[in-house]
């Protein structure tokens, strides 16, 4: 399944500030530029998503696979999908127009380009949240429950999974989303994620700082506002 997403405005100011490593109160001072970023993003973004559902197979010991025997490695994803019998695989992109907008801004005005990049990241997150709801509505049956999103590269789930997820969803053909040799999603402002599905309530498990690669140097963590921390158990 694929769908065009209606881009949702306004963008969350608090999140934009977080990406810019500044306190949320700064949003007022930046309002003019944030509004410009919103306007330009709304004009150039063509948000699209595609998703599909696959059975989850819990094997011996730590083995966990989905779809055509694609392994899910790492403790975090196992905890996240605990109790689930299926996964919804989701891919979302804002499209290549946003990348062009970002390149253009970088050539003209560094300060604005950094703010625009932060705003585009927030827009991609908001598009992913919207896609998540569409996917659940389309692919979860009555009486089923689901977890939140969990993306490759998050916690100890290997980023290499992108290379399996993208072809499996036929993402280049369906929504114009590909992955580079270095495992970067292109267009840049894109998200892939797994959502667990179960026949009983499941909460999921968002990886906290323990398994994060950036743990030792993370400025957010030092300031006591870790990115996923407040949501994790």
């Amino acid at each position: 399944m694929r769908a065009n997403l209606h881009f949702s405005l306004p963008l969350d100011r608090r999140e934009i500030c977080r990406y810019l490593s500044c306190p949320a109160e700064e949003a007022d001072r930046l309002e003019g530029e944030i509004a410009r970023a919103e306007r330009e993003l709304a004009e150039r973004a063509a948000a699209r998503c595609t998703f599909a559902r696959f059975p989850l197979v819990w094997g011996e010991g730590d083995a966990l696979t989905f779809g055509p025997q694609i392994p899910l490695e790492g403790g975090d994803i196992r905890r996240h999908l605990s109790g689930c019998s299926a996964v919804i695989l989701l891919a979302v992109t804002l499209g290549s127009g946003v990348d062009e907008l970002l390149r253009r801004a970088a050539a003209l005005d560094l300060a604005y380009s950094v703010l625009l990049d932060a705003a585009a990241s927030v827009a991609a997150e908001q598009a992913a949240a919207l896609a998540e709801r569409q996917a659940e509505a389309a692919l979860c049956r009555a009486g089923e429950y689901h977890t939140g999103r969990f993306s490759p590269g998050y916690g100890d789930l290997p980023l290499e999974l992108q290379r399996r997820v993208i072809p499996l969803l036929d993402a280049p053909r369906r929504i114009g989303l590909a992955v580079t040799n270095s495992l970067i999603l292109t267009p840049r402002k894109s998200v892939t994620a797994l959502i667990g599905v179960a026949d009983h309530p499941v909460a999921g498990w968002l990886a906290g700082c323990d398994s994060c690669r950036l743990r030792e140097k993370c400025e957010w963590r030092k300031r006591g506002m870790p990115c996923g921390g407040e949501k994790s158990k």
Binding site: D99, A178, V179
Partner: peptide
């Protein structure tokens, strides 16, 4: 068909 990776400048190919 398409190569499956994006060409520059969107991608790195």
């Amino acid at each position: 068909g398409p190569l499956g990776e994006l060409l520059e400048p969107a991608g790195t190919l």
